[in-house]
Every structure is written in C-alpha cells, then in structure tokens.
Design a protein around this nucleic acid. Sequence first.
DNA 1: CATTTTTCTGTGTACGCACATAAATATAAA
DNA 2: TTTATATTTATGTGCGTACACAGAAAAATG
Lengths: 360, 360
Amino acid sequence: MKKEEKGKIRIVDIAKMAGVSIGTVDRVLHNRPNLSTKSREKVEAVLKEIQYQPNRSASALARSKPLEIYAFIPQHAIGTYWEDVIKGMQHASGEYSDFKVRTTIAYYDPYNLYAFEVSAQQLLDAQPDGVIMVPTEPHYSRKVVDKLNEAKIPHLFIDSEIPAYQPLAFFGQDARKSGYFAARMLMLLNPMHEPLLVFRKIYAGISGSNQQDRRQQGFETYMTNKYPDVPIHYLDLPAMQPDEDELMLDRFFADHADAKVGVIFNSNAFIIGHYLAKKNRSDFHLLGYDLIKQNINLLQDGHIDFLIDQSPKKQGHLCVQTLCDYILFGTKPAPYNYIPIQLVTHEILDDFIQSEMEYD
Amino acid sequence: MKKEEKGKIRIVDIAKMAGVSIGTVDRVLHNRPNLSTKSREKVEAVLKEIQYQPNRSASALARSKPLEIYAFIPQHAIGTYWEDVIKGMQHASGEYSDFKVRTTIAYYDPYNLYAFEVSAQQLLDAQPDGVIMVPTEPHYSRKVVDKLNEAKIPHLFIDSEIPAYQPLAFFGQDARKSGYFAARMLMLLNPMHEPLLVFRKIYAGISGSNQQDRRQQGFETYMTNKYPDVPIHYLDLPAMQPDEDELMLDRFFADHADAKVGVIFNSNAFIIGHYLAKKNRSDFHLLGYDLIKQNINLLQDGHIDFLIDQSPKKQGHLCVQTLCDYILFGTKPAPYNYIPIQLVTHEILDDFIQSEMEYD
DNA sequence: CATTTTTCTGTGTACGCACATAAATATAAA
DNA sequence: TTTATATTTATGTGCGTACACAGAAAAATG
C-alpha cells in the first residue's frame, strides 16, 4: 500500500520496459486477439515483476460502452424486503455511474416454472455483462446458472446460497447460524422455560424461501442441544386471506396458553405482531426478521421484542460493487460474504435505520 | 437518479449555454478569482437550472496536487481499538488513491497538555486539506478546533462528540443509548435481579474517554427507570500494574458474592475476563465493548457473554470517505452519523469479524 | 520465381472530461 | 497612444481505451 504511491507505473512504462507499444500491452491486459506469442510473453514477463494497478479514473473515463448489470429478483416482493435490496443496488449503480454502469432489475415469479423460464430467457437475451440473482428453488435456478456459465457471464448469489452451483460469490446471512442465535435470544426472554411457538408462512404449499427453512433448522439445533425439554409448537399460516389467520391464531394461542415467547423466520412478523396488538397481549414476546416498515412500527410499540436485521441495502450495494470491480478491474471477491447477524431492539432501532439510509 | 443517465451535462455544455468558455465556468465552479460579475451571473444562472454533477473520474485524473488528510488520534492506543480505526482509514485512503488522496496519522498524548499542544501545532503546520480527530478532553480539543476553523480546514469528529464545536460531521456511536441498551441486555442475563457490578478503568486519575462516562450514564438511566431496586456496585481499577488488579478484584467479588452479572464500559473487558478465567468463575456473566483480540478470545471461551461492537474499521473508512467527498466534490455529509449498536455473542462473532475484514 | 492478395501483428492517435496555465483579447488607467 | 490590469480563450496534461492504419509475413495467383 505504500510502494505505488510515488512512481505509479503506467501503461506506457510497461510498454517501454517490454519494448513494445502500448496497444500491445493493452491486448495482453484485456487478452484481446491479434498478437504474437513472443510479444505476449515479453509483456507478461514485465507484468509479473511489477504489479500493475491501472488507474481506475482513466480507465473509467476511456471506456466507451456501458457495463450492463442485471439483477434477477423474485417479483412477489414489492413493498417488502427486496425493495431495500434493490435500493442498495441502485445506490451503488449511481455511485458507479461515472464508470458507465447501468443496473437493470428483472423480476421473476418464483412460484411459476413457466413464467420463470420466460423471464430467464429474457435476461439471457439481454446479454448482460454481469448478473446478480436470488436463487430460490434449486431446480429452477440450475438452468439459469448453467446458461450463465455457458455464456461466461459472471454472476453472484444474494440472500440464499446454493454452494454446489459455484457462483462468483455469495452475499447474505448464514441462515442456520442466525436461527441458532435467535433461539439463544428467545431463551433469554424465556427464563421459566415455557413452551416456544414457531410461526411459519406457507405460500401455495411451498415453503417460500430456503432461508426460512435453514433458520428453523438452526433454531432447532440450538433447542435440541441446550433445552431439549422445552416444548416447541408450530403453526403454519397459509396466509392467503388474512381473516383466516386470526381464527387460526386464536385457536393456536388458546391451545398453548402457557407459551410466552414466539418466533417467525421471515419478514412476516408483523402478522403476528398485529394480532398481538389487536388482542392486547403485551405479555407475549416475539422475535422476527427484517426491518420492514410494518415490523418497525410494531417494534416501536413493543409488540415485537427483537428483529434480526440483514442490512438489505448494504447487501444490494455490495453485490453491485463487487460485480463491477470484478468485471472492470478483475478484483476477485471472497466466495462467501456473510452479513453480520444484527439484533435490533426498539432502543437501538434508529441507528440501524439511519445507518442503512447511507445507501438510499 | 435517472435524469443524468442519458445526456450527461459536461462543463463544455455549460459553457455553451452560458455563452462563455470552459475556463470561465471552471472559475465559477471553484470560485477562483479573475472573472467579471456578469459572466459569473450568466454561469450561475445556468448552473441553477441544470444540476451539474462533475465526472469524478475526469476530475480525479486532472487533479494535480494530492489531497492531504490528517487523522489526529490518541497515541496510547497501539494494539487496541484505535488500531482498527486506523486500518479503516488506510483502506479508504487506498481506495481513493487514484484520486490522489494521502492519509497521515498523527498521534497525540491525551494525558499531557504540553505534548498535546506540540502535536496539534505540528498538525496545523502541515497544512492539511482535511482533518479527522478524536476529541478527548473538551478543553484540550477546543484550541485545535478553533485553529482549524481559523484556517478553514474542514474537520470531522470520530468516536466522541462535542456538539458545541460543530465539526463538519460526527461519526461514532450514541454512547448513552449504547449504555441504555447494555443495561437491558444485562438484565436479560439477570432474571433473578441480583446485584450488578460495574467495572471502570481510570488512567492517571482521568476517566479516559467521554464515551465511557456517557455509556455509564445511559446504563444508569435504564436501571433507575426499570429496576430501581437492583443494587449496583462500582469498582475503579487504576490499572497501572495488573497484579494490583487481581487483589482488588478478589476483594470486590468477595464483597459481592451474590452478584452474577457485570459490565465494563470500555474495551478492557479482557481484564475482568482473564480474572474470571483464572478463577474458573463460569457462572458470572460479563458484558463489554469492542472486538479487540483479547476480548474476542474470551468471548469464544465463554468468559465474556456479550460484546458491543462499534465497527471501528468502518468508522475510519467512512470518515476518510466522507471528508474526501466533501473536499473533492462538495458532498455535504449528515451532521450526525451514528454507527449501529451491535450486540455480538460467540455464536455470531465470526460474521462480524469477516464483515469488518472488508476494510483491511 | 515474381507479383498480388490476404492474414497477422504492431503503431499511432483521437477521445473521454476536468483542470490549470499560457496566451490572447478586452478594458481601464496613465 | 502606451502601459498596466482585468478577463477570457486556447491549449496541453493526466491515463487508459479502442480503432484506424501501416507494415510485415504468409499465402495465393500468374
């Protein structure tokens, strides 16, 4: 970090050292065609000795075509968590606008195979320079990933990981660990070791997200290890019509009147929170995920005790930034980028909100 | 965020619109001398209509003199918290190296007025373009701030705030809130409402940092409001020679054998943690601050339950970034930038460490 | 074998945009 | 009108990119 300061090596310097012209050096750097093996070797020899760091400003200034980044995101998400992820992406895109970066959001329907494939094809037809995608159902995602690999389009996974598919990098939380941690926090709210309630959201019979399932697994691991005797009761909310929810919740709470603590492993905590507020149950403690508006309100009112934040805007931002740095400057990212598991209570909520505003 | 995309307005465009040459526009933008009132007005009129966003790459490329940022930091801090702050600064500096930014760390002795003034004068003599400083004792800091204002050198405060001095911006945690939150977390570990122990570190009779005091205030506010009947016992460790510590701790713990929970409002939790480890007291719960190496080890061993993280590297990074953006591009920062209060346990520690590595 | 055409390789250079200074012009003072 | 000063214009610089072009080598044609 100190060496380059003074005598920054420029591309002309390399050309001089290698005894070729700058155009030739450029060909090596971007491995473009039309150059002989000898001159390639000469340049590569020089590059090995000095480690060349191109001037990003000059590079940006000179680039002619814009860099097209596509984000492939589940569409059912308007007004929710994904909205913040997208904001973060757009913010990064704005910061890189001098670098001629253009970010496009492409939505897909994760519950409709046919529609999904159509969207995926549209994505590929656009011939983007890089793709950020949220892998949902592994089988669906596989096809897209294969085609991206075939077209040699670098791609990142965000939110949910499928290690076998080997994207350029993954950004998101370690879901199991987060569930494990959630269990510990819940048990702090439950010193009398009363039963725990777990609420789940089921969309059209499908679990919805890998993340939800993995968090639950982590939670169960903790409970099995540390508190095997604490009973856990589950309620699946189909949540097609909210009025049904209330009936189900009435019954569930009546059946487990001794429970004082509950958890839901997605951003729908507000459904339970609203119910608690309506029924004036201030004795019940709830842990949920994500600082979406409805959850925030309930956290402030005291109907949600803990929210685990995932810094969605930061995630979106990091993805765009990482992908651009890779494509433009060859910066290799870490394969796994785990976002810290952040516990938010009403006391410290404001600082989290303000901090994420950084990416607006 | 969409408008500029297509027809980015350049400085020549402005010149054309205003009917002057680019040099004249440049004078207005950087308010340099030697231009008539009429042409200034003409250009300003145009600038008001369109909102000009200079191309940062071109700007960086063209700048001739480097931008000198100085960070003014307490020196007793080697091997501790400040080290990470500095790493974050250097990382940002590296990222901005194409923008010809140079960051220099200047240390001062916060416990020696004379030495402090000498350091401050050296800082001012260097005529930096911007300064990041940690205000310690208000009276000491005042003089430096006054001189910086006089020389019109923009400056930020990091870590500790003195609102009356009105720096360009503040970066750090809301210390009172953090203490308030710490109290809540402690009480979760203390369901039987046993007495609380508070450990303090006193350097040469001086409290050390504003932050420590403010955290304690927040803590006491919470306890007074919510648990006025829980006794709190204080121990001040002069901590000049560690062997004395042990004797004091022996006595303190003996006097308050019923206490199961303790807190220390600075990064010296490891002192208590080491003691607990040595005495094999695994029943005692401890909350401390900062992910410094010694604390991390004890968190992993289970001798510290909670650490509150301040993202020191991120803070350092943000400061340099903010200051550069302000000086180079006139981006006005928010006056208060509160870093989220992050609760770290051994379960989720790794993700925090990895996340901060982003700034290495 | 000489000559033309095609393919390959490498060179030169305009361009992107803001900045800064030298040169040129206009204006005022002498 | 000359000299000094104020104001504006013209131009070169920073550095990497990408393309047009020149030159050389190889292949094809007569």
